[in-house]
Design a protein around this nucleic acid. Structure first.
Lengths: 233, 233, 233, 233
DNA sequence: AATGAATGAGTGTTCATTCAT
DNA sequence: AATGAATGAACACTCATTCAT
């Protein structure tokens, strides 16, 4: 009686099947997280973080409340994940494109151009900004969040501009007397100021024209222009 | 024992008085409204509009809940009154001072200087900004509010700059080719962008230096600089 | 114009009336608190603290949720208030009666007799015990609660017995070699052990007989009897 | 392409195997149950039955949720199994040791000694007690559970003492006038009362000293001493 | 006009249990 | 038998607003 050999194989196979196979793939989980984040983004954009409820997210995502809490441990957690992902994506794409541009000056021009065209190219831009700014205000009342955002701001955004400016100074494209730190701070203050107005005023605000004028002013500031004038003479 | 008859007369009289004659003066009412608004501002600045509760306002104002609802019909209502009043006050003071300055260029310089010094002169500036921006974001989700703010923005703030620029163009101080509308929009976008960063980052943000550099750039843009250069020759 | 003098009187009267009169009396508030606590006690006794919900209390009290939270800041808070009040009441009554009894021995006998008769005299005794013990277990996992209860236990309950025992030792009623601290701890351990069984087993447990036997043993222990024996031998 | 036919056979075979033959041995299942119960005990002891979650048990056991539900149909079910097993084990060990002791008096002394030393010998004693008592309180609200515990209490614990006492009466070691039922009930009331205090107060409670004093009192009660007294007189 | 107790729908979060795989 | 994602009813608690006094 019995076929020990086959039994062994059989049991092994069964055990393997049972033990090893992950019920859902990693991709599945990623997809779910993404789905929640996308729904949450829309809800936050529509109503604001405070006003949007988990029930809104539940309803719009078509998932159950428990399911969402399997992926994120709180509403704040979704917010943070959302922001990290948005930052990572946008800055990553930017960096990729910038690295293909040889001159620092051209890089700055490219960057400013990207932002000038955002309103037309990226239909989510308005929402993006509102959610972003709201989160930011939020952070000023939560030390942990503030540190997270501040770090991100300094190490990622400001650093990006800072590096371009320093490179430009090195190659002689930009004025040596430039305060790269100050300008990188000012750069984002202006970009975000304009974007905030756009996010609030929406299509009543001439986003592109304002952004282009701002870009012009920034380029004028960092270029050797003033010295050119003197040379012109 | 008492004097029921007289009591009756008294009560009647009192009731009548309340109905017929305004027992408290208009000034008293204004004073109360002001008190509520001031308290509310502090609460909103500290916690944010959404998070601050009516109970916070009750507690900090020393008034009763019912009293507050006698003066304002909702929390939103306080917010709106607050913003209207803040705008009126700040812009009113500004206008007073500007009218004493004869040249458009000097007016612009004065204005930029005022904002540069805000952080040091006005310890409430950070709170001011946060409440302002938050309210603003709020407004993008409430059409009524949005119209109110947009009108205010255009008719008061942008108009202020627009008028100075046009005057400067008329007197020849500023370049004739200037797009006054565009610059007045850009002006506030930059000021508010810098202020927002400051409101969030607080003292980690070199507000004054950034604001001064921004002022420099704006002045450079609107002045006849290019022509000066030529004249310099 | 007008009658400033009368106006003054009138306004003063009105202001006084409005400002001073408390809308609800202190008694009213005490009555409400009591009502909530009584309802809560019944709920906790029926289902246990953990299982009983605020909605149970809401439903059974006939009050609204918000009203309850106006009087107590949390479910725990109700629990604590409940326990403090129960302790205060029961120990207060006990102390009053004890103070009328001249001899320490008689006091002990009285005390034991009170507990022996609890089951028959106090129909809530079972519930009382269960709620009490449950709260107690709860406390072992909450340091703050534990300290509160421990303090109460030591300073009120154990102290009560300790004082009687010491008084008895002083008057020669009780053995000088008695460890008053130890006996006072043991006393309540036994009383509560018996009560716990009764609270759980309910009328299947011969509460009175057990308590009487225990009382007999305790009295035997603290009386001079044992020494007489040794001397007798 | 595959071999659908063979596939079919394979799948069928596997399905059949699972259905027909027990793939895992009865021992394996017992081992699993034990593992779950041990983990559950630790969780319940740490947090209490209500507060400990199935997820706690999942995490600490290293098993999956589904697996646990294969062995126990509910959280309550684990609780019951746990209690039954604990009772069986502890009483079983006790009985084994008692059977080796020839005299009833020595058996009582041994028993009391075991409990006196529990705190020092059994580091789990505190947890044990808390879980036990908590379960017990629980039972008072669940008729089924109550009957189960009451039966267990009477048939196992009280019976144990009852038998020793009766044996002692038979051999003349204990007083003939002893109410064995009453004393056996009192015995556990005292033991559990002391243990409960210890479980809650933890090391602030002089467990051993109290238990020894209680043991002394119990022994004094059941020994022939009292009759000696009468004779003495 | 003033009071503050009352209201109750709504909030984020938890968790025993189920079930497709 | 094993997995762990999904479910959704509960939960304690909040708070803008109302209204009897």
């Amino acid at each position: 009686m019995g076929q020990p050999f086959l039994d062994g194989i059989f049991n092994f196979a069964i055990m393997r099947m049972i033990k090893v196979a992950p019920i859902v793939s990693r991709e599945y989980k990623e997809k779910m997280k993404k789905k929640i984040m996308e729904t949450a983004f829309l809800c936050f954009a529509e109503k604001g973080f405070q006003v949007a409820t988990m029930d809104d997210i539940v309803k719009n995502s078509g998932m159950s409340k428990g399911a969402i809490y399997n992926y994120f441990k709180s509403k704040d957690d979704i917010y943070i994940a959302l922001m990290e992902e948005r930052t990572k994506t946008s800055i990553g794409q930017l960096k990729d494109k910038l690295s293909a541009i040889p001159s620092a000056k051209k890089q700055m021009e490219f960057l400013l151009n990207v932002y000038s065209l955002q309103a037309e190219k990226n239909p989510e831009w308005q929402n993006n900004i509102r959610v972003h700014i709201e989160f930011w205000l939020q952070s000023s009342r939560d030390e942990k969040l503030k540190l997270l955002l501040e770090k991100r701001m300094k190490e990622i955004y400001q650093q990006l501009i800072f590096d371009i400016l320093e490179e430009g100074k090195r190659t002689g494209e930009f004025s040596k007397s430039l305060d790269s730190t100050l300008i990188s701070i000012l750069f984002w203050s202006i970009i975000d100021g304009i974007s905030t107005y756009y996010g609030v005023m929406k299509d009543d605000y001439p986003y592109r024209k304002v952004m282009e004028k701002a870009g012009e002013m920034i380029l004028k500031e960092i270029n050797h222009k003033s010295e050119y004038h003197k040379e012109d003479i």
